[in-house]
Design a binder for these strands. Structure first.
Lengths: 339, 339
DNA sequence: GAAACTTACTTAACTGCTTAAGCCCAGAAG
DNA sequence: CTTCTGGGCTTAAGCAGTTAAGTAAGTTTC
C-alpha cells in the first residue's frame, strides 16, 4: 500500500522530478509531448499529490475551519447548521478544500481552537457563526491575521468578509403583515441577547412597533431553547392584555409556543397568531403549520465559502448580502380576534 | 505574522534543531536543564508544531474523515448527526485529531471522496455511517486498507471496527410493550430498505409479531422523509382492519403520522398508539409527545471515535456495543381501544 | 592509563512537492 | 561565424519537522 510519488513518475518517464512537477501542474517548462507522457504515467499509477507535502511547501492547508460554539444539545435540534454546512461543502469540495469541524461549548474554547488551528497551519481560513456583539473571537482573529468570513452582519474596520441577510427588512415585513391582519398587540420572543443578529432583530421589531404606533414594544429574552420559549410564551399569555400575535426568533420556540397555547386553551390562529423567525421542516411538521421567515440557508453557506476562498486567495474582503428572508404564510397566523 | 519554527527556538537556545526536536517531544538526548530552557523558549514564542511538516515526516494526517452520504435536506431535520458529531469531537479534539467533514449526495460520490482523501493522505481513518446491506464503500475501504469504523453492526471478515446498539432487543421491547397494552394489530413504517439497520429492525419486528401470534406482520417501506411517513400512515389507516399501533423507524415520520391521525380524525393515543424509533427534542415538541426509543447518541459518537483511534494506532479492530435503546414512554402510546 | 561506555549533543538524510536558478542546445540575428 | 534568445530540461534549495548516525567530551572499568 505504498504511495506513488512524483519521484516514481520521474523515474518511469526518464525525467527529473522538477519536470514532473511542472507537467502535473500545467506550468510551462516541459514540451507537450513530455507532458502528455508524464500525465499518462501519473494517471496509470493513480498518483495524487500528497497534501502534507503540498501544504508544507505552499504553506497552505487546503482546509478551512468551522467552529461551532454551542452546547451540543442546541445544535441537535437546529436544522440550520447541517444545511449551512452542506452549502459550504458545495463550494469547498469542488475546489478541493476540506472542511474541518469543531464543536465546542463556549467562546473561550473556540478561541483556543482558533489559535491552535492557526498555529498548526491546519486551516487557511475560518467561518465564524453566531456572532456576538462583543465577540472574544474577533480580536484574536485580527491579531493572528486569519482570513475569516462572518456569517452575519459585516463589521467596519475588521478586514473580514461577511455574508448576511437583511434581518431588519424581514422583521419589518413580519410586523407589517401582522398589522395588516389587524393585530395591535404584538410581542416578540427573542433569542440570546448577546448575539448580534438578535440585537438587530429586536431593534427592528421595536422600531416597527413604534412606527405603527402600537405602544411600548414587548420583548422577552430567551436562550433559544424550547423550554425558555415555552416559559416566555406562558408569561406573555398570562397577562390581562395578552398579545394576539407573537414573533419568535427561531422555529423551535415557536413550536413550543404552539403547545403552550394548546395547554392554555388559546386557539391558534383564531385567538393567537404565531410567527417563526426561522423556517425548516419543523414548521411544516406541526399543526397548525407555522408561518415563518424563510430563506435559502444552503445558498448562505455557499456564498460564505465563496467569500472566504476569495479572501484566502488574497482578494479584498467582500460583503455579500443574501436575499431578504420572505414570509411563508401557513396556518399559524390569521386575522386578529375581534375586540 | 510569520510562524515560529523549531529553527528559531534552536537559535535562541543556542542548540541545534535536532536537540530542540528531542526536547519538545520528550525524548532522551538532551539534559534536563537544556530541555527546560527549550520548553521555556518554545512556550514564550508560542510555538506549535506545523501539522504539514509533522504529517510529511510521520505520514500521519492527524485527522479523521466523516462522509455523510445523504441528500442535504434529509440531513437538516435529523438531529442525529449533530449529536453524533459532537460525540466524535469530544474524543477527537482532546487527542488533537481534526474532523474532516464532507457531505455528498450518494455512495458513488462518497467512494470518490474516500479515494481522494486517502490518496492525498488527508485522513488517517474514516467513520462510516448509514451502512447499506450491499455497500459500495466497503470494498473500496478494504482495497485501500483505510482504517475505518462502522457506525453500525460489525461485519465479519471486514477487519473494521464497529460500534452498534442492539436494535433487535429494542424493537422487541417496543412490541412487547404494545402487546402488553393490549394491541394486536401492530404495523411498522420502516426506513430505506437498503440500509443495514432498517433490515435488522424489520426482521426483529417480523419475528416479534410472529412470536406473539399477531398474524402476518405488516411493514411499509419509506425513504425516511416526513412525506413518505405520512403517505405510509395514510395507507395503513385507510384499511378496514387498521392497526391500533404503529412503530416508526425515526422521529420525523412519527411526527408526520401525528398530523395524519389528526387529519383523519383518529385520536392518539385513544384509538392509535404511535411509537418513534429515534428520540430527539422533536418528540417532546409535539402534542401528544411521542413515546420513543431513546439512546445516548453522543456516547455513540464518542465510542466510535475511540475505536477508530485505536485502529489507527495499530490496535486490532474492536466491536463496541452501546447500551440497548430504551423506551421512553410519553403521551402517544396507550391501551389498545376496546373491541 | 587505555579501552569501553555514557551523556549530550550535532549533522545530515529523509518525508514529497514547489520553484528559482542554471545549463545545454537549436535556431535566429547581426 | 559569433552572439543572442529561448525552449526544455536538470539541479538544488526550501518548506518544518523527525530520526539514525556520528562526535566530542566526561565517566567508569580493570
Amino acid at each position: 500500500m505504498k504511495r506513488v510519488t512524483i519521484g516514481e513518475i520521474a523515474e518511469r518517464a526518464g525525467v527529473s522530478i522538477g519536470a514532473v512537477s511542472y507537467a502535473l501542474n500545467g506550468r510551462p517548462g516541459v514540451s507537450e509531448e513530455t507532458r502528455r507522457r508524464i500525465l499518462e504515467i501519473a494517471d496509470r499509477l493513480g498518483w495524487r499529490p500528497s497534501l502534507a507535502a503540498r501544504s508544507l511547501s505552499a504553506s497552505r492547508a487546503h482546509s478551512v475551519g468551522l467552529i461551532l460554539a454551542r452546547p451540543a444539545d442546541t445544535l441537535g435540534v437546529e436544522p440550520f447548521f447541517m444545511r449551512f454546512i452542506s452549502g459550504l461543502e458545495r463550494e469547498l469540495s469542488g475546489r478541493r478544500v476540506g472542511l474541518l469541524l469543531q464543536v465546542v461549548g463556549d467562546h473561550a474554547a473556540a478561541v483556543e481552537a482558533i489559535r491552535r488551528w492557526w498555529a498548526e497551519r491546519r486551516v487557511d481560513g475560518l467561518v465564524v457563526t453566531d456572532l456576538y456583539a462583543q465577540d472574544a473571537r474577533l480580536p484574536v482573529i485580527e491579531e493572528l491575521g486569519v482570513p475569516a468570513v462572518l456569517a452575519g452582519r459585516p463589521r467596519a474596520d475588521s478586514g473580514l468578509g461577511a455574508v448576511w441577510a437583511d434581518d431588519t427588512a424581514a422583521v419589518d415585513s413580519s410586523v407589517d403583515y401582522l398589522v395588516a391582519l389587524g393585530h395591535r398587540r404584538i410581542a416578540r420572543v427573542s433569542g440570546l441577547p448577546a448575539l448580534d443578529h438578535t440585537r438587530v432583530r429586536v431593534a427592528a421589531f421595536r422600531a416597527a412597533v413604534l412606527r405603527h404606533g402600537l405602544g411600548e414594544p414587548r420583548v422577552v429574552e430567551t436562550d433559544y431553547t424550547a423550554e425558555e420559549g415555552a416559559r416566555a410564551t406562558r408569561a406573555l399569555l398570562s397577562r390581562p392584555d395578552r398579545p394576539t400575535a407573537i414573533l419568535y426568533d427561531n422555529d423551535v420556540m415557536a413550536v413550543a409556543a404552539l403547545n403552550v397555547a394548546q395547554e392554555m386553551g388559546i386557539a391558534v390562529p383564531a385567538e393567537l397568531s404565531l410567527l417563526a423567525g426561522d423556517d425548516s421542516q419543523l414548521c411544516v411538521l406541526v399543526r397548525p403549520a407555522l408561518t415563518a421567515l424563510s430563506w435559502d440557508i444552503q445558498a448562505y453557506g455557499l456564498h460564505t465559502a465563496q467569500v472566504l476562498l476569495e479572501l484566502i486567495d488574497g482578494l479584498p474582503p467582500r460583503s455579500h448580502q443574501e436575499r431578504t428572508p420572505v414570509l411563508t404564510v401557513r396556518g399559524s397566523t390569521g386575522a386578529a380576534p375581534a375586540g
